[in-house]
Design a protein around this nucleic acid. Structure first.
Lengths: 185, 185
DNA sequence: AGCTTAAAGCTAACGTCATTAGCTGAGGAG
DNA sequence: CTCCTCAGCTAATGACGTTAGCTTTAAGCT
């Protein structure tokens, strides 16, 4: 029997993909093992537990989200930066609902582990957006939390099917970005 | 052996309390049964499955949240109504994180079941807040979704420990309400 | 090439948990 | 007082995460 050639990253990637497809709450060791052509116990050579896999997916997702934000924000400022960041955030949650769900749920953490660091990079990207608006330093944290709340709230409600049909969600998103832009100026 | 005298509502209430205490994801039939002084299989006389219990807790939570909002909004309008609604929303999630978590997670639903109806009442209360601002009818849905996103996002991030220490979350919340008030006028 | 060795993957087994089947006795209706 | 419904119980099943211990791959060294 030939080896599968796995490592922690491969297991994490398979778990992340599966979470996006079937939902984070339905992510199990058995399904991940199936997908990798391996038996469940083999995964424990690369990952210490299902909780550990969750944590790794959370780090992966946060890192990817941060990368996407940095990518999309290059060369933009003002409304353009705001719109780009909002779109990138929402788009990531739409494309990777399972990954994003992994980052939620009380992942309280030591202040300097990998997840916290990845999260900081996301926040720094959002802070860059705000800097273009010339927010007073004392208010920057508040504005950052507001921005994050709005984006996180909109994206998760949309991904969870929370917006009833009837009015186009696309229009609501555009309106939200406009609202934030006006308020920040 | 005397009877416990349970019914669906009692089981749901016990489950909701337990979810608030230990977290929605750690809610299990065994723990609920323990709390009620009963064996796990007995619960199935009142609830068809763990998923059914989840759904019932979601309905309970949404109904309670709607009641709280209506209660707190009596006689208020403008900023006062906005502040009251925001506080009520945030306070409910803080006091009942397990219950609120039950309402999340892809509870896509037939358009006229009990959960959808309870959710509509919550939305109607938020719509009342907006009406005090004289939003154009065409924008009302967008403003409603924005308001809900902001409150939901802030409350869930706070409940999940998402805001790093350093700056007072209380101040950020006040700032958020102010931001929304300014933007809606 | 042959030898050694860390570890990748496997089978077997265990514990926990949700759920089902089928029994028993409590307690309200007559 | 009797009957019968059904609340709650015990026993059993199946799914799943996890551990223990074995086998064998394949990389590194001589």
């Amino acid at each position: 029997m030939p080896r599968a050639g796995l490592d922690a990253a491969a297991v994490t990637a398979a778990g992340a993909d599966l979470a996006d497809e079937v939902g984070f709450d339905r992510l199990g060791m058995g399904a991940v093992a199936d997908r990798l052509g391996v038996r469940p116990p083999s995964l424990y050579k690369h990952v210490t537990s299902l909780a550990d896999l969750h944590q790794r997916i959370a780090v992966l997702a946060t890192t990817e989200l941060g990368d996407t934000l940095r990518e999309e924000l290059q060369g933009l400022s003002g409304v353009d930066a705001l719109r780009a960041a909002a779109q990138a955030f929402r788009g990531y949650v739409q494309e990777h609902p399972g990954r994003y769900a992994a980052t939620l749920g009380d992942r309280r953490t030591a202040p300097d582990d990998e997840f916290a660091r990845a999260g900081d990079r996301v926040l720094r990207s959002l802070a860059v957006v705000l800097r273009g608006y010339g927010i007073a330093p004392a208010e920057e944290v508040h504005a950052l939390r507001m921005l994050r709340s709005a984006l996180h709230g909109f994206a998760t409600l949309e991904a969870g099917g929370g917006f009833q049909l009837g009015t186009d969600v696309e229009d609501s998103f555009t309106w939200l970005v406009g609202f934030l832009d006006r308020g920040l100026r």
